[in-house]
Design a protein around this nucleic acid. Structure first.
Length: 309
DNA sequence: CAGAGATCCTGCAAGC
DNA sequence: TGCTTGCAGGATCTCT
């Protein structure tokens, strides 16, 4: 389940393996993976063909590749199970392969020379290493997908203009977030998952941050004091940076790691998935509660429910 | 208008 | 063993 840290790892992989390459052709193998591109698969493929990919960007769980000299971007969301893989053109298709993007630098040497100067996205990587690879969008549950959109004046795909900055964004406004909590009549976990208030936080990191902050998921947001909001945001950032520190080091050895498959962070979770296991702070068995068609994990002792409700 | 809940999808695991 | 049911959950849509 890719959340912000996993998506950031994918973004870094794309910067190295895809940024600067020119699209030769696009193959859409499942219509649902392209459903957010309203003009359809053929239009998507046609508009990308022959265009150079810019440096990948990310906001929350969305990432996008600017399409050079077009004012548009390829927007990607991994959903629940999506992966962006850079694989050898010879590698057999994955079972849930949905979209394939081929590049002009595949085998033709003259093309390769023409494109080589753009590869590596300024990271100092060798230009040759991407040659012979293609980009694949693989997604079992098809909650994710790719689409093409006009950019807003700040270079953001227009359809995600409503997505708030994420907590790792230097321009995230802590005070505005706090004021939004004060105004809202909702509860804290709902607020953390509300992508128009703060983006990039999913069910896993919400539970982790709330456990670290010793806050019950149903605490009303209107009760939050400024120090409490600051503390919670600090924990959100800590848990994300910790995951990024682990995952961010594992992506660069081989291109098959340019994906949304995590695993690396699961071992260090303190709350999520730990029903009946002892709280790592106080030893009390952790609990799971059904919540919004999913689950909330918490320590009944460290994270006391609010008095009312 | 804000907030709450349903919905999409597929594979796996649990239970009968 | 083989079926059914439940669960995972981000974003969007619908309803109150």
């Amino acid at each position: 389940m890719p959340e912000l840290p996993e998506v950031e790892v994918v973004r870094r992989g794309l910067a190295r393996w895809v940024g600067g390459r020119t699209v030769a052709d696009v193959e859409v193998l499942h219509p649902r993976a392209i459903r957010r591109h309203l003009a359809g698969a053929d239009d998507f493929a046609h508009r990308l063909k022959g265009h150079r990919m810019g440096a990948p960007m990310r906001r929350g769980k969305y990432l996008w590749l600017p399409v050079a000299d077009s004012g548009m971007s390829v927007l990607a969301h991994l959903g629940m199970s999506g992966q962006l893989l850079v694989k050898s053109e010879q590698a057999p298709d994955e079972k849930h392969l949905r979209i394939r993007v081929r590049f002009t630098d595949h085998e033709d040497h003259e093309d390769h020379v023409a494109q080589a100067g753009h590869l590596g996205d300024g990271d100092g990587e060798g230009a040759d290493e991407a040659r012979g690879t293609e980009l694949r969008f693989v997604d079992q549950r098809t909650f994710g997908g790719l689409s093409l959109h006009e950019n807003t004046p700040d270079g953001l795909p227009d359809v995600i203009a409503h997505i708030a900055r994420d907590p790792l964004d230097p321009l995230f406004d802590d005070e505005a977030f706090h004021q939004a909590l004060r105004r809202s009549r909702s509860t804290i976990k709902r607020a953390l998952l509300n992508q128009s208030l703060i983006s990039g936080v999913g069910n896993i990191y919400a539970d982790e941050a709330l456990w670290r902050a010793r806050l019950h998921y149903e605490r009303p947001t209107a009760t939050f004091t400024r120090p409490r909001t600051a503390q919670l945001l600090g924990h959100v950032r800590d848990v994300m940076n910790a995951a990024l520190a682990v995952g961010g080091t594992s992506f660069d050895s081989l291109y098959v790691n340019v994906n949304g498959e995590s695993g690396y962070f699961e071992r260090s979770l303190d709350a999520y998935g730990r029903e009946d296991e002892p709280c790592r702070r106080c030893g009390t068995p952790m609990r799971r509660r059904p919540w919004m068609n999913r689950s909330s994990y918490f320590c009944p002792r460290c994270q006391r429910p609010p008095r009312l409700s």
